[in-house]
Design a protein around this nucleic acid. Structure first.
Length: 350
DNA sequence: CGCCGGCACTCAT
DNA sequence: CTAGTGCCGGCG
């Protein structure tokens, strides 16, 4: 989940980029793996729903991973989706919906309506952690195409759609949060534009509070729920930072924030983050974010990661996964410093 | 008119 | 039912 409407407002600083472009810098790309799995699952939805063995969706993801690796880009696959108390209800609804759609699909099929059944199958597909696991086993492939979009936090000041002059990362983060995020109820009538204006004026969320006393509270609750994450973007530099030394385990990025409120504690949030990284022999050069990666990140912050804990995976050739708990992770790796900070900040915000 | 929010569509094959 | 985009209606 991202921040709705954010990308269009950053359009002026988003630039096309190809995986092979980075002229020379180590690259690391964050990808929302579940999103890939979902897309890949479209090609084998029926099989997945009926328990028929298939690896098409896994191959789809590997294809992309290998493509990036081919160009020397290290994809960091993030498996978001840990259990979050606040998300449980949502998850239950989805589970119910999937079940209903599966039943519907079967019925359509028995009635000879293959097309309708196919549609329902799509809605019944459940991307499970085990699939993520499968992806990690690997499999190999290779390919082409690697067009994406690059976002550099450093360009934020040059953004034309919306001025970020005087904005700190924290402010950007708070702006996103104010505008609403997934799994949380949004503040009525507050979209990105309004949130931007408010942050610009008050500099921080709290002061906003003043203005919107009532609303704010809600927001805070939301946040606590957990969800937000960092917005840290990574500029090139950042990227480099992280990267994982090759064999080392990676860091996870998303660790989750310390415990904030109650939720986190119990949560078992384990989200799995994994990042397979590819380390190809080649990567060398700068980072680039692929596709909206960055954006996603930004966006992501809010919605998903919050909880994350990271399990990290690294890869040598490909992967391994380990899970680590956030705290450790974070500390272990220096990598995410930025991100961490942001997260922390988030917490604070909350 | 600007902004917000809901809805439909795409996705892969 | 993931995230993103585009369109449309409502509201101030």
């Amino acid at each position: 989940m991202g921040i709705q409407g954010l990308l269009p407002l950053l359009k002026s600083i988003m630039t096309p980029i190809h995986a092979k472009e980075p002229e020379g810098c180590a690259v690391a790309v964050d990808v929302d793996t579940y999103s890939w799995l979902h897309k890949g699952a479209l090609s084998c939805r029926k099989e997945l729903c009926n328990g028929v063995p298939t690896t098409r969706h896994i191959e789809y993801c590997m294809h992309r991973v290998n493509l990036l690796r081919h160009y020397g880009v290290k994809p960091v696959l993030v498996f978001d989706g840990g259990l979050l108390p606040m998300k449980i209800e949502q998850e239950n609804k989805r589970a119910r919906s999937r079940k209903e759609n599966l039943a519907r699909a079967i019925e359509h099929e028995s009635n000879g309506n293959g097309a309708a059944a196919y549609e329902c199958y799509q809605k019944a597909v459940d991307i499970t952690p085990s699939m993520a696991h499968e992806l990690i086993q690997i499999i190999f492939k290779m390919d082409n195409f690697g067009q994406g979009v690059e976002f550099q936090y450093s360009k934020l000041q040059q953004n034309r759609e919306l001025s970020f002059a005087g904005f700190t990362k924290q402010m950007v983060l708070e702006m996103c949060i104010l505008s609403g995020c997934d799994y949380l109820q949004s503040l009525r009538g507050i979209g990105l534009k309004t949130a931007h204006a408010l942050i610009k004026k008050f500099k921080t969320y709290d002061k906003e509070e003043d203005g919107f006393t009532q609303e704010v509270p809600d927001a805070s609750e939301l946040m606590e729920g957990g969800a937000l994450d960092e917005v840290g973007r990574r500029g090139p530099s950042l990227l480099q930072q992280s990267r994982l030394p090759i064999h080392k385990p990676c860091v996870s990025f998303k660790e989750h924030q310390p415990k904030s409120p109650v939720n986190r504690v119990d949560e078992k949030t384990r989200r799995e983050c994994k990042k397979p990284i590819v380390r190809s022999s080649y990567f060398k050069h700068q980072f680039l974010n692929e596709t909206d990666t960055d954006k996603e990140k930004e966006t992501t912050p809010v919605g998903s990661d919050p909880t994350s804990i990271g399990e990290t995976v690294c890869v040598k050739g490909m992967i391994i996964k380990n899970k680590t708990y956030a705290d450790d992770t974070v500390e272990n790796v220096g990598v995410n410093s930025i991100e961490e900070k942001t997260r922390r900040e988030n917490k604070e915000v909350m």
